[in-house]
């Protein structure tokens, strides 16, 4: 149980599963990496980023920039302004609307996607900074006739009402179970503390995530 402000909260994930800032994907983090990294590590980062990134040493924008994002295993070309966030690029440019824009400042988790194995808030990642990463969205897990076990568990336990927070929760749960395949209830409550629901579906969500863990382990759908 963490604290934020003066109120009791548990709406943040553990520091090790933080979705933003410290996770190394922010633009600021990248720039700091370059500044400090005169050694091999820094150069390595720069080289990897450079494969897909716009002019090295120069700057991007302010107009549209052609970028390539690897989304659900497929390289996807698009043109966005450098200031456009990943969630806006997904929703407005690519018509991938599973991730929702709700708080737009890394609080509620409705825009959750998985980026190179880490759960991130897509509202707080710039699209151009997502180049070179493996981006997994709700559209990329499961298939039309075989939904992902987490999605199925949400149905079985009625873990959704209006459903607007649901895709974010499903992605957060998937990312959580990838790291924590045998969770306790307490771990579920902590691990999904970075997502918020307004209709009040947490009772179903707790059960759904525990069930999904068993399903995935049993290899049914895995």
């Amino acid at each position: 149980m963490g604290t934020k402000g003066r109120c009791l909260v548990s709406s943040r994930k553990d520091p090790d599963v933080s979705k933003t800032g410290q996770s190394g994907f922010s633009r600021r983090g990248f720039m700091q990496g370059i500044g400090v990294g005169s050694g091999a590590l820094g150069a390595g980062i720069l080289e990897n980023e450079a494969q897909a990134a716009p002019p090295p040493g120069g700057f991007s924008g302010p107009g549209g920039v052609a970028i390539t994002l690897r989304i659900n295993g497929k390289p996807t070309n698009l043109t966005v302004e450098p200031r456009v966030t990943l969630v806006d690029a997904l929703r407005n440019t690519l018509d991938m609307t599973g991730a929702k824009k709700v708080c737009d400042r890394a609080t509620c988790g409705a825009c959750t996607v998985i980026m190179s194995g880490k759960v991130v808030y897509a509202c707080s990642v710039l699209a151009i900074d997502a180049q070179g990463k493996d981006i997994q969205t709700i559209e990329g897990i499961g298939s039309g006739n075989k939904p992902h076990p987490v999605s199925m568990a949400f149905v079985h336990h009625d873990a959704q009402q209006c459903g607007y927070c649901t895709p974010g929760f499903v992605m957060a749960a998937k990312g959580f179970l990838d790291r924590t395949p045998n969770p306790t209830l307490e771990q579920v409550e902590k691990g999904l503390g970075g997502n918020l629901c307004r209709c009040g579906t947490y009772v179903g969500i707790r059960q759904a995530v525990l069930e999904a863990a068993k399903e995935i382990k049993g290899g049914k759908n895995g």
Binding site: N92, T97, T137, S151, Q160, T166, P167
Partner: peptide, 21 residues
């Protein structure tokens, strides 16, 4: 019974007004 639109919602396929493009 399970809600009928459950899968549409939990797979992100349900299209809300704000999803319309």
């Amino acid at each position: 019974l399970e809600r009928l639109d459950g899968i549409a919602k939990s797979t992100g396929r349900a299209k809300y007004a704000s999803d319309f493009n």
